[in-house]
Design a protein around this nucleic acid. Structure first.
Length: 160
DNA sequence: GCCAACGTTGGC
DNA sequence: GCCAACGTTGGC
């Protein structure tokens, strides 16, 4: 028995990995999460969960599309790879500390739903990403907030 | 480039 | 276990 679908938001710097990269790649591992709280959220993700793809450290920052979870959490191999920017020297072989989920591209929005717009949207009051000083790269999103972002985007993706 | 927020590290 | 120092994130 699978649980009800959950909704999430994941941040990426477009210089590192953008929604366009995601679209070209189709599916891929969400590498490089090195924060326990974010990792634990990823461990709660199930196949079919929907994720808002957020561009950070860019102009303007905001949600640029939708991806979905296609494989649940499993070890992030980059933690063992000395050549990777995500290498973690503290981690012992056979004792992975960090996970990835695999995600698949669903939709790239015609236009970014900017952080500024989101802040100005009453329907998004209380959304975690809008909290001052929020730095978490993976956060849960209320279904009502998820739907409100889709509406702002004029998205093709629909959620019942 | 600045700096607020906040997670992590390590000495004690 | 406390907490100061330090590092990172990310908007502006």
């Amino acid at each position: 028995m699978s649980r009800a679908r959950k909704y999430w938001l994941m941040k990426s710097e477009p210089d590192v990995y953008s929604i366009d990269d995601m679209e070209k790649q189709g599916t891929g591992e969400w590498e490089g999460v090195r924060n326990y709280q974010a990792r634990n959220f990823m461990r709660d993700m199930k196949e079919g969960d929907l994720v808002l793809f957020y561009h950070s450290n860019t102009k303007p920052p905001g949600v640029v599309g939708v991806v979905k979870v296609v494989r649940e959490a499993h070890p992030d191999e980059t933690q063992f790879d000395e050549k990777s920017p995500y290498y973690d020297a503290r981690v012992k072989k056979g004792e992975p500390r960090w996970d990835v989920v695999d995600v698949g591209h669903v939709e790239t929005f015609a236009e970014t739903v900017s952080l500024e717009t989101m802040k100005d949207t009453k329907a998004l009051d209380g959304m975690l990403i809008l909290r001052k000083g929020n730095r978490l790269s993976v956060t849960p999103v209320d279904k009502k907030h998820f739907k409100a972002v889709l509406k702002l985007a004029g998205a093709k993706t629909t959620v019942r």
